[in-house]
């Protein structure tokens, strides 16, 4: 069962995991909006250490307003950054003020 639907506002968690983590630091703690559900994939954090029997996890594409990610840089107001985030790195949010 998918936790999020397209359009949902989400926050990227900072899980502090070590190893082969595919969620870059620049996107942690940021709030964005789900734009696409990608299906389920084996968790790269497990695959990297040879654990291929793990549970497949939901993967979403999430859009973020560039002006909130990099306030000091030169972005147009509608510019977006879209990145893939695994379900366990996402939390639902009610506050939609900062999402694109």
């Amino acid at each position: 069962m998918m936790r999020f639907a397209v359009g949902d506002h989400v926050r990227v968690l900072a899980l502090g995991k070590k190893g082969h983590v595919r969620i870059p630091h620049y996107i942690r703690h940021q709030t964005g909006r789900v734009v696409n559900y990608c299906g389920t994939y084996l968790n790269p954090e497990d695959l990297a250490i040879g654990k291929t029997g793990g549970k497949a996890v939901d993967l979403y594409r999430v859009a973020f307003a560039q002006t909130t990610l990099w306030p000091d840089a030169d972005h147009a107001l509608h510019d977006r950054l879209i990145i893939e985030i695994y379900d366990h790195w996402l939390a639902p949010i009610e506050d939609t003020r900062h999402a694109p």
Binding site: R22, P24, L59, Q66, A76, D79, I82, I83, E84
Partner: peptide, 15 residues
């Protein structure tokens, strides 16, 4: 042009 929206896609995972 600034009225053209720029979407940057980070292919960080499986896509």
């Amino acid at each position: 042009p600034r009225d053209v929206q720029l979407d940057v896609h980070d292919s960080n995972a499986d896509m």
